[in-house]
Amino acid sequence: MSTKIFVPDAECDSCFRILEKRLGKLHGLDGFKKGTNEITLLTDDPAIVKQAIHLITAAGFRASLDPFNRMSIRHRIKEFFSNKSKYLLERRMFLYTLYAFILLTALEVIAYPGLLSKIPNFMGTYGWWLFYLNVSVATLGAALWHVAAHKTTTTCMVGMMIGMTIGMQTGMMIGAVIGATNGFFIGSMAGMFLGVIGGVITGKSCGLMGVMEGMMAGVMGGTMGAMISVMMFSDHLLWFMPFYMIFNIIILWGLTFMLFEEVVEEKEVMRRAVDAETFLALIVIIATILGAIMLYGPTSALISF
């Protein structure tokens, strides 16, 4: 005499109160029990169950009689390559990362003869770090572009995860790069400010919790990123950086797939992204400011090239 409905997006008391109010209006339903990401209706009448699923879905939650099985990473990657239309936004994100990296590198090559070559020992001192700055700005910018394209609210857990990942990775990557050329103070400040901004922008999809999580991650990532560079400066930092960057990029791309699974899959979500021109213009502005800080900003006495 009971039917279990899987509601994976119902996470907190407020979610269940909304469902209680909606289902309370359903005639013929004797009652229901709430569980973790599921509710059990005290009826097995198919018509009432169907109406209940409709009411839950109308409230913005996924609902089904069958559990929502998560796709394995292998299956997801396979589908990413075979189903182009489904992952259009994600494909654009990877393309935009590449475009942004190429554009930033091209602008630096153009600026080299007249401007950058005048800086003493430019290639030896800043060559690798400008490369890592381009990698960081391009991947972070595209990941942020992708998150911002989802015009929807998220559950607390998902929103906090998004805010934390973007805040932390922004702080870690930018903090480490600027920290390596300018020292702990400037590196921490640059990483922390950008991390906090990125964390707040993306974390607000779930409200205050996501904003707080994003801010905390930005503060932590920014200071930690700069600290890593300063502490490893005399211990194979340049050998460490490729691995550091690769892991950070994998985390950012992992967020993209998590976002798809938690926010987009089996839901009707509006996805509207900023156009390529605006995205690339913003990337150039941010990279120019960070590049100027790197090349002309104050440098700590701890950093000596």
């Binding site: 407020s14 109160r17 909304i18 409230a59 913005g60 998220t154 559950t155 409200g207 919790m209």
Partner: peptide, 10 residues
């Protein structure tokens, strides 16, 4: 006491 979108909807 509000902490998520569900609170606002409620």
């Amino acid at each position: 006491g509000m902490h998520c979108p569900s609170c606002a909807i409620l």
